[in-house]
């Protein structure tokens, strides 16, 4: 509670995310919201009591689709972050801990991923493996690997120089003991911050891919795809593109604020470093 008062922005962010999560995972169980039910008598309606966000070109309820879109968006982002973390963190750990040729080889591979802006990389990948939710998830996940690898490596390198890691070796601890029991537990906080920030980047990237028409294929509801279609009806139904975009934006802002507050709190505690954001989407 005291933390919430001290960081009102992050508290608001958490509250908003809680609403989105509740709405997307619990509401469909209680409320009669069907994102796919078409109603050709009511296409491109403005917001009303029956349809709070209005209806789309096929007469589907936009709010229902936003809620369903949240589910796909959040699960895709979570999966992507999981992939990125599970690959990126070990790469950074090994590269930073052992250095030498392992470091050179691993980081050169990471450089290749960074040689293109993330969105282009994801697009090229999807062009090869075809459009699907899994494809979007994998593509977004792979673009997140360099972030995790670099943050982990930087953290491990900094820790590696500290005497308490050397002390473990002097005590006779094995390499795996000092890597997993000493270095990694001390490297968590920036990785945690990176998880939050990368989730927001992943949501943004997934939406951008859908907006470009290479994300999750329709008719599955997706925020980016709704913006893509809504953009065609700017004159007829301006709220069509605006409202889903607003929810998307607020979600990203919430995560970003939480991530940065977390970074500050952890930094005050033990001096972690905030991840720098990379490419635009």
């Amino acid at each position: 509670m005291r933390l919430a008062l001290k960081h009102p922005g992050a508290a608001l962010g958490i509250a908003f995310l809680a609403v989105v999560l509740l709405a997307s995972f619990v509401a469909p169980l209680i409320l009669p919201l069907d994102p796919l039910a078409q109603d050709f008598t009511a296409t491109l309606d403005p917001p009303s009591a029956a349809h709070w966000f209005g209806t789309d070109e096929l007469g589907r309820d936009i709010l229902a689709r936003v809620i369903a879109g949240a589910r796909t968006s959040l699960t895709t982002a979570a999966g992507a972050v999981l992939i990125a973390g599970c690959i990126g963190v070990p790469i950074g750990l090994v590269a930073g801990f052992f250095g030498g040729w392992r470091d050179a080889v691993l980081m050169r591979l990471v450089d290749v991923l960074l040689a293109l802006p993330g969105i282009l990389f994801a697009m090229a990948l999807i062009a090869v493996i075809g459009r699907s939710q899994m494809a979007a998830l994998v593509a977004v996940g792979i673009t997140g690997i360099p972030g995790f690898a670099r943050i982990t490596r930087a953290q491990v390198l900094a820790l590696r120089r500290l005497d308490f890691v050397l002390a473990v070796e002097a005590m006779g601890g094995s390499a795996s003991y000092s890597m997993f029991r000493t270095v990694l537990p001390n490297a968590w906080s920036p990785i945690l911050v990176q998880v939050v920030i990368l989730t927001s980047v992943a949501i943004l990237l997934e939406a951008a891919l859908a907006f470009l028409g290479v994300g999750i294929p329709p008719p599955a509801p997706s925020w980016g795809d709704m913006l893509r279609t809504g953009k065609q009806y700017l004159y007829e139904a301006p709220t069509y593109a605006v409202l889903p975009g607003l929810v998307l934006t607020l979600t990203i802002l919430s995560l970003d604020t939480i991530g940065r507050t977390l970074a500050r709190v952890l930094e005050d505690r033990q001096g972690a470093h905030l991840a720098t954001l990379d490419e635009p989407a």
Partner: peptide, 12 residues
């Protein structure tokens, strides 16, 4: 500026 997706800002 960072959080608003460019495609939404563009639409606005």
């Amino acid at each position: 500026a960072l959080g608003v997706p460019t495609f939404w800002l563009g639409i606005l």
